[in-house]
Amino acid sequence: MIFTTAPSAAPDVEAAESYSQQIPSRLIANAEPKWLKRQQYVYRRTVLPIEGGRVLLRLTQTPIVEVDPSTRECEALGWDVRMPCDKVENLAKEMARRFLDLFSKADAGRLTESERSSWLKVLDHVDFVAFSVDRAAPHYLEGTLKRLEPVCIIEWHDGERRLPVTARGRDAVALAAPSNRQPAGGISRRPETAPLVRLPSAKP
């Protein structure tokens, strides 16, 4: 029978800051990797918030972050965004900032040759059409509410039918068109992605 630990049973583990805990077959290290070769990590994000989340930049590819152990810096591949590994929590913000910086310069026709190359690479990673729709100024669009329940259907002026699928979308329709066959003015065709208060552009 065993009753006590050995008097000198100091556990043979690393210091707390590099302590690893294990969940099934996966190690979680609380320190940056120390390998000599560059290592790539998947950064699972599908959107980047802009303007505090009022506009979302949808990504078409999962970002890849490459770590350079010699400089302890990491880089979002295809974005030309580099930063120290210990500041990596700012990566999404810096990617969004990079996009906006290039976008504003492209919009003003002020891209340098290298920036133009970067801009083209960034465009490969984002849904630029959706971004353009989301950030466009809202405008009035007339449609007819065909039904609200169980599935909301609006027929827009050009005959297209769209289903606002979320609760917010249904709320928006209910507010704008309280009775059947009323104009559903100002309702986005993408209400599932837009807060009610913004009523963003309906034009895709």
Partner: peptide, 16 residues
């Protein structure tokens, strides 16, 4: 959980 391991033992030794 540690008290029913069969055999004669002196101490429990890390790692646990």
């Amino acid at each position: 959980v540690f008290s029913r391991i069969p055999g004669q033992h002196e101490y429990l030794v890390a790692p646990f």
